[in-house]
């Protein structure tokens, strides 16, 4: 019984990601095909990298093709934020046992947003985390393959559907805000990023944002941690 409940909870939690990953995945699959890469290349990337941002950039790197050094540095810059996600999950993922490597591998923006929140009370925590990560990975792979194979015959306009990603973050942000869960962090995150966007421009603002917000949050950590 508990098992079914966990599967149900994980599936429901992953549903908002379904729409977004299908669409972004399809976009990725189409880009790959436009550069002459077929379904195996598309699936291989979604399977092994599992990072939307880097895979979008990666299409260009493959097509060029870029050098190994260029590719490594680009990957480092585009995905440096993941280090901060992982830092904040060190404690949470401590007792996850055999699931741990896959959980870490699957820490995308969206998976992180879902799993940094609370696990539903009637679900087995580790299985729930594993299933949410797995569902999201499957959506991402299927999206890419779908785009690569049938990108041009989608019968309705999907323009604007990528807003589902934004909506995932906003819904989660609002929920935590209502629960009065670390509002200071929420404000610091938004304001720091906005300021960095203005200062550094849209290509470079993520890394300074992460560094500065971590620094700001580190002021007076002892008193905060004690409460």
């Amino acid at each position: 019984m508990e098992k079914n409940k966990t599967i149900k909870r994980a599936f429901i939690a992953s549903l908002p990601v379904l729409a977004g990953y299908m669409v972004l995945g399809i976009g990725f699959g189409i880009m790959m095909r436009d550069k002459g890469f077929g379904v195996l290349w598309t699936a291989a990337m979604s399977l092994s990298i599992f990072s939307g941002t880097l895979q979008y950039v990666g299409v260009g790197l493959l097509a060029a093709p870029a050098t190994m050094i260029q590719t490594a540095i680009t990957s480092l810059i585009v995905n440096a934020r993941y280090m901060f996600y992982s830092i904040s999950m060190v404690k949470k993922y401590k007792g996850t046992g055999k699931y741990k490597p896959f959980l870490i591998f699957g820490l995308t923006d969206e998976t992180y947003t879902i799993l940094s929140g609370e696990t539903p009370k009637d679900a087995n925590e580790n299985k729930y985390r594993f299933l949410v990560t797995t569902f999201n990975h499957i959506y991402w792979i299927i999206g890419g393959i779908t785009g690569n194979l049938l990108g041009q015959i989608i019968p309705f306009s999907t323009r604007g559907i990528d807003f589902s990603m934004t909506a995932i973050f906003i819904a989660s942000f609002t929920e935590e805000w209502i629960k009065k869960n670390n509002r200071k962090g929420a404000i610091i995150g938004v304001v720091t990023t906005l300021v960095c966007l203005l200062l550094f421009g849209e290509k470079w603002f993520l890394i300074p944002s992460m560094l500065i917000m971590t620094l700001l949050l580190s002021i007076k950590p002892k008193r905060e941690a004690a409460k």
Binding site: Y85, I87, F169, E176, G185, G189, L206, M213, L217
Partner: peptide, 14 residues
């Protein structure tokens, strides 16, 4: 950091 970063990161992603 595990307690305070997630909300800041989600704000950043928005």
């Amino acid at each position: 950091l595990g307690e305070v970063l997630p909300q800041a990161i989600i704000g950043m992603l928005i």
